[in-house]
């Protein structure tokens, strides 16, 4: 009953929509919905709201944020993938939705490569390896030695099974040939709390999220995963400098739309979004939160997403990480 009603509704909607050809000159002729497949208040939601707010004055129609949370963004992303590529349904989501979900959720109803057109990678932030304040190691070398001395014993807090910081830890273990116990939490904040309280030993956390805790001496920072040193911690080395290659990882946020966006509409959206991200009203605010502005074009973003999907698929496979079903 529900199914057939949905089908009927969908059919009618399609009829109405196909009756009108899309002309880019007319775009946008009605409000544009930006789906955020996470709850209000999270990183993806904040990026979406801030960027669209700055973009709004130069955009002829309202940009409306719609939160469709569920399954690391898979619920909302599936809906975007199935929507009509007319530029009136867009999405702002995270690395998990675009990249790791594809491997971790084999049943997901979308494939970021086949079903989505990227508009821009909005921002990225490297992770930092942090430890509890009284941890004996003071640099990565000592830390790895400690891990090797006590295999499968140190507690690595993460913001969830399959999250970007869990996978970063996994990659770190793989690259250094070490083992530890993964302790997942429900989000970054409780994981950080337990590292500070000494209830967990170490964690990979977004630099922006832990910067202040390190400055207050409540955590120790050993290294960052970026390609270059973090402006917040010019004295802290990158893993690359320390000779650990392949750990230049970032968490990132990106805008996209369903596959098959008309070229001129896509260009218009790319331009609007990247200009907003680089605007003096927004850029310093995002940087204060620990983000680096990427704001590349859609083609570059497409290539980057494909690369990230393959890279994390390998980490997940090598680490034998499964979200059992």
């Amino acid at each position: 009953m529900l199914k057939s009603l949905h089908a009927l509704a969908g059919g009618v909607a399609l009829l109405c929509a196909t009756a009108m050809p899309i002309v880019a000159q007319d775009y946008p002729s009605k409000p544009v919905t930006v789906i955020v497949p996470f709850a209000p208040g999270g990183a993806s939601d904040t990026i979406a709201r801030l960027t669209t707010q700055i973009m709004q004055p130069n955009f002829a129609q309202p940009l409306v944020i719609e939160n469709k949370p569920g399954a690391t963004g898979a619920v909302g992303a599936g809906e975007v993938a199935r929507s009509k590529p007319d530029g009136y349904t867009l999405m702002q989501a995270s690395i998990g939705t675009y990249s790791t979900n594809l491997t971790l959720q084999p049943d997901a109803t979308y494939d970021a490569r086949k079903d989505l057109d990227m508009l821009t990678i909005a921002v990225r932030t490297p992770n930092a390896l942090v430890t509890r304040p009284d941890f004996p190691a003071n640099n990565v070398e000592e830390f790895v030695a400690e891990l090797k001395k006590k295999p499968d014993a140190l507690l690595f807090a993460s913001s969830g099974a399959g999250s970007s910081d869990h996978l970063t830890a996994e990659l770190f273990w793989q690259l250094t040939g070490t083992t530890a116990i993964h302790v997942p939490y429900k989000g970054g904040a409780p994981a950080q709390t337990d590292v500070m309280g000494g209830h967990a030993d170490a964690s990979f956390q977004n630099v922006g999220a832990i910067a202040n805790f390190v400055k207050e001496g409540k955590m120790k920072i050993l290294a960052v995963t970026g390609e270059t040193r973090s402006p917040a911690f010019p004295d802290v080395p990158t893993f690359k400098e320390l000779g650990i290659e392949g750990l230049d990882v970032y968490s990132w946020q990106a805008f996209s739309g369903p596959k098959g966006l008309p070229a001129d509409i896509r260009t218009k959206l790319e331009k609007g979004l990247t200009e907003a991200l680089n605007s003096p009203d927004l850029k310093p605010k995002l940087e204060a939160m620990g983000y680096e502005i990427v704001a590349n074009d859609g083609a570059a973003a497409d290539a980057f997403v494909a690369q990230e999907i393959d890279r994390w698929a390998k980490v997940i496979k090598d680490g034998n990480i499964k979200l059992e079903n």
């Binding site: 569920g70 399954a71 619920v75 599936g78 099974a161 399959g162 429900k186 079903n325």
Partner: peptide, 20 residues
């Protein structure tokens, strides 16, 4: 919903809406 420790989906009966 999703089990925090392993990411396993429990009692969702194939409905992604129940994943959280």
């Amino acid at each position: 919903g999703t089990d925090v420790n392993t990411g396993t989906l429990r009692y969702t009966m194939g409905m992604p809406e129940l994943a959280d």
